[in-house]
Design a protein around this nucleic acid. Structure first.
Lengths: 238, 238
DNA sequence: GGCGGATAAGTTGTCGACACTACACCTCAA
DNA sequence: TTGAGGTGTAGTGTCGACAACTTATCCGCC
């Protein structure tokens, strides 16, 4: 979407670390860094030409976001996802976003409706699956920002990247946008908008919950889990 | 309660940092470190006799837990809480725990019922408000552990300490246990147990949500927000 | 030829040091 | 007395280095 009125601004602190976080996060989400790929501090330190301190902080941040895992041995890897992980994340989103929708509904204005309508219009014109996914996530983020509960938003953001990582892993095989997902998404978001603008809190919460749950249906059945072969390959690359 | 079967075990990594986290978290939650108190890395470094590196990591972890805030200037303080913060946290708990109860309900066993019953029995004998609070939180943690969704549990744990911090701040004035909260808590938890053991997912979720919401009622009306005077005093102490 | 052990490389956890910045205090002038 | 400016102090962000540990490699032995 164009511009998010409640755009993220703060946290100018931890600068080099922030740079590393943004870069690595992008590489993980885009799939350039595959699950299981090792993330060694000295290697990253050389790549970024930073000392190990900011690298280390960045890895801690990424671990917090669920994109990276510290093994018991101390080694760090891009997080590997099991079959159940996508379900877990969707379920967590249902919990957070249904409450978020309830609160956002209570504070809904015409401006919010206009923003969502613009987003939906962009979705209807989306030509690739990643683009559609991006618009979809931005819509959901908008609702969470509008809910007015900073904790709820923070919790949502802390699993957001895991969700995007799952999406990217499942999208890699099917880059072409099928007709179905787009029309389904647009339709579902129209229903969601109607619920949010209706002023009925329970309806908004339930519609959001149902919408997120049904996103599992047209999501690929293939599991994002990586088998040993893929992982070995990823290690070789990185 | 006695022993939690799904006790936390992992993360032996980042050892000194972990020690600092546990220590500082305890001091913040217990109220020894008041909101607004400065947390300078060199000072803590001297106190713990560690280098600044583990201290720094610990502060990042505590910031993640919401107990500590980084100011735009870079300074670090014990987080100050506004009037709305307690509501925000309770609302987030409602979102997470109602979903947690739904899932736990689906996997409920007689052993779980027995554990909760022991907890409730201990609550009925609790003699202080902090003790009752501890048992209360342990019960809720048990349900979240039993829900089987690691993400949901992780999200819950990431706001747990904020909740305990709020509790401690509001409890400081009323150390003596009034008759009412204890009987109310025990009664509510009996209802909750019945719902969880009933096998009816929606009932379990709604009961949990209502239970958490009503905890706002007998919670102190006084806000945990710190005024300038208290904050200045806290700075002087630390 | 296969296996065990010693050796080498690589990685993490921790440490002390330095530059830059923000803040507090103190001095000086109006 | 009050305000402005300069100075000193404290704190953060970053860096390179070292010890302990884990993993991989290679050699010797069976």
């Amino acid at each position: 979407m164009t511009k998010n009125p409640a755009a993220t601004a703060p946290a100018p602190r931890r600068n080099l670390a922030r740079e590393v976080v943004l870069s690595l996060r992008q590489e993980i989400i885009s799939g350039k860094l595959r699950p299981g790929a090792p993330l060694s501090e000295p290697v990253l330190s050389r790549q970024f030409a930073f000392s190990r301190a900011p690298i280390r902080e960045a890895l801690i941040e990424l671990e917090r976001e669920g994109l990276v895992q510290f093994e018991t041995t101390g080694r760090t890897r891009v997080r590997t996802l099991a079959e159940t992980d996508f379900d877990e994340i969707v379920e967590a989103r249902m919990a957070l976003e249904s409450m978020g929708a309830r609160r956002a509904c209570a504070r809904w204005t015409a401006k919010d409706t206009a923003w969502i309508e613009r987003n939906i219009a962009a979705e209807a014109k989306a030509s690739t699956l990643p683009e559609l996914s991006r618009l979809d996530i931005e819509l959901h983020e908008y609702v969470m920002r509008r809910c007015g509960n900073q904790r709820l938003l923070a919790l949502w953001q802390s699993i957001r990247w895991q969700f995007e990582m799952c999406l990217a892993l499942t999208h890699r095989s099917q880059q072409k946008l099928a007709f179905k997902p787009r029309s389904i998404t647009v339709k579902a978001h129209r229903r969601l908008l109607a619920a949010l603008a209706s002023g009925k809190l329970e309806i908004a919460a339930q519609t959001m919950s149902a919408h997120i749950e049904e996103s599992l249906e047209w999501s690929p059945a293939e599991t994002p889990a990586e088998d040993a072969k893929t992982r070995a390959k990823a290690e070789g690359v990185a």
